[in-house]
Amino acid sequence: MINKIVGTAAEAVAEIFDGATVMISGFGEAGSPIELIHALIDHGARDLTIVSNNTGNGHIGLAALIENKQVKKMICSFPRTANSVVFPELYRRGEIELELVPQGTLAERIRAGGAGVPAFYTPTSVNTPLAEGKETRIFNGKPYVMEYGLKADFALVKCKIADRYGNLLYNKTARNFGPVMCMGASRSIVQASQVVELGMLDPETVVTPGIFVSKVVEISNPLSENQLIKENRRYPWA
């Protein structure tokens, strides 16, 4: 019997090891698996390389993971946002590495990693500082930069509905990096707002096929980052 459902977020992240590369879904708050990230803080794995579009907000979620000194390196496209305070401070002190990747290149690198494509060429970043030191090649008279596919040991992803096979549906623009990260990681750990019986999801509308998912934990009322930031909350909870 296949049953990817686990009981708690702690159980879901227990296998994450020191030095792992972890993809974390979300575009700002939308789609960020805050309960899984907090479980990873409790778990304590260190020297992580995190692949995520941003670097978290306030002192909760991804920002709290970084603040707790568990992250050695960030691979992301936009490390500063209005509420991003933790990463900029550590970066300026030289205490965290940054690999800056254009957003579309980041998505494509993750998809390529998941599809077994080791590298590809793109015109994005040609003639800019982000192409420095990278192989370039001319196709049909136009220059392209070579970018490597990106794989991870784990992905932490938030979705709306899942079944025990790991088939997933998302919610609006919270989908963002979730589907490609499930493909790009060896082990994808998902928090779903609702777990339903097999057969309840219309096979025509499944967004992430269960083959890309390793574990699902039901978190029926996920915390709102926005609300926590308004309340000036920190994780671990004071």
């Binding site: 496209s77 936009f78 490390p79 500063r80 990463f87 900029p88 970066y91 300026r92 940054l98 800056l100 990747v101 254009p102 957003q103 579309g104 290149t105 793109t122 015109p123 994005t124 970043s125 040609v126 800019t128 982000l130």
Partner: peptide
């Protein structure tokens, strides 16, 4: 030198 570099989707948009 003190700026936190952030690019988002700008380089993808201008090329594509």
């Amino acid at each position: 030198p003190d700026a936190i570099p952030a690019v988002g989707g700008a380089m993808d948009l201008v090329q594509g």
